[in-house]
Amino acid sequence: MNFFLELLVGGLTKGGIYALIALGYTMVYGIIALINFAHGEIYMIGAFTGLIASLFFSSLGLTGWALLALVIMVAALWAAMYGLTLEKIAYAPLRKASRLSPLISAIGASIFLQNFVLLTQTPNYLLFPDLASDLPGLSFLKPIAHLASPIQVCVIVMVALILAVLTFILKKTWTGLAMRAVSQDPLMAQLTGINLNKVIARTFILGSVLAAIGGVLIGCATRQIDSNIGFLAGLKAFTAAVLGGVGSAPGAVLGALILGFAESFTAGYFSGDFEDVVAFVLLTLILTIKPSGLLGQKIAQKV
């Protein structure tokens, strides 16, 4: 039973982080129908800037909650800038091109960013500092430490908080309203006075911030990062987004949790070798059986 609960918590942690990345995919897809292939690299860059920031600030003597908050803020800021630059260089000029062009451009950007970080930093694994395990005020978690480590609890709580904030942004703010309007009908939205490029830029910023937070959290949870983490995580998050129905935010979270559990249980009860295969098999199955995903709407193609 304990083993089962451990796997459950592990799956929940993983799923939560996939959800943070998957939301970026799904929001961008909802608005400009583009698979932002380089989104996984933004997550990786978030992890790296987070690492640099944490090493820098801890050498200044910061610890605890202040350090964690500052690291997340710096990582989110830089990831947002990378996301914005990516949009302006690789996607914005291709707004009117054929569907294949932005996708190839996105793959190119992904390879570029991955090797950029590899060449400027290191091809090896880097140790990520333990930012969350001895945070003051978390000692009440000691009794359940054998089931869920403090960092796992931290990740789960933070993901839940972020999702709440995101729901608020999407449902209650003007930006969220504009995003939803653009995703329903870009032309009509523009006619009502919405600046399309501004909304797209904000979507990229929002998605990148979420991915960067995911990057910092995964760094804390696995304690090591390298320049390749973005590729696989991006693919899995995309799988999660497709699973839930691309374009639907709650669907992305649901898909991410399902994927997290599926991976965790496969690794626990079957074999760790096949953990990575699960996502791809799931993806192929979903796309062949129900391409619109669990919560997605089937949109008739207009001619």
């Binding site: 260089i89 690789a90 091109a97 054929s98 451009s105 190119g108 390879i111 060449l119």
Partner: peptide, 22 residues
């Protein structure tokens, strides 16, 4: 050079090709 310079160039090339000469 290293293999990664090659990949860096190829990645950038894909983006530039798509933007300027699809």
């Amino acid at each position: 050079g290293s293999d990664n310079y090659r990949l860096l160039i190829f990645g950038g090339l894909l983006v530039l090709m798509m933007v300027f000469r699809p």
